[in-house]
Amino acid sequence: MAKQYDVLFRLLLIGDSGVGKTCLLCRFTDNEFHSSHISTIGVDFKMKTIEVDGIKVRIQIWDWLSTAGTQRGQERYQTITKQYYRRAQGIFLVYDISSERSYQHIMKWVSDVDEYAPEGVQKILIGNKADEEQKRQVGREQGQQLAKEYGMDFYETSACTNLNIKESFTRLTELVLQAHRKELDGLRTRASNELVLAELEEDESKPEGPVNSSKSCWC
């Protein structure tokens, strides 16, 4: 019997507060949807196992929110949140199709990704809340245009109606797998930082930060 292994990836959900990142995550991992908005102040994650090309992939999806709104608040948290970029192999950039502002901010988020995320990180653009057609402020083609500009795949999703949720998560996972094909092939001989053998996974699943360590050790 061939040695079975799991691959662990870390994906990150980013975008303005209120675009529905947590809802996307809950829908994808637990197939649940809660419309009430609870601000995430901090960083949360959930696990999900999917199979792509016959490889069992465990994905750890990180979700954070940089305070309810104010620009000042965002900046305050930025020094902290940027650390989470470093660990990600894939990033969802999420806006809300009923919020022009959240769409405009994608540019800022992309520049953050460019600045903090590791090279070769895979990105995908998500226009969420596609079910709220009557409140639409951002056209589908606008989303496609922006995605094209940045060379990203684009999905309009709805956590509420479960539109394109699985598709978009699977797609990003595929992209990450492709990008790490080489390491994956070499997986039998060694486990790199990004690709973690299942046995090691338990130890890896926390953003380790021993208080006494003098180095910055969030990554």
Binding site: I41, G42, V43, D44, F45, T67, R76, Y77, I80, S205, K206, P207, G209
Partner: peptide
């Protein structure tokens, strides 16, 4: 007088306190 505290749960999430 301004700081952010990161409350980390082992194997779990992080909370930010302002």
């Amino acid at each position: 007088i301004e700081d952010i505290l990161v409350l980390h749960l082992d194997r779990g999430k992080d909370y930010f306190l302002s």
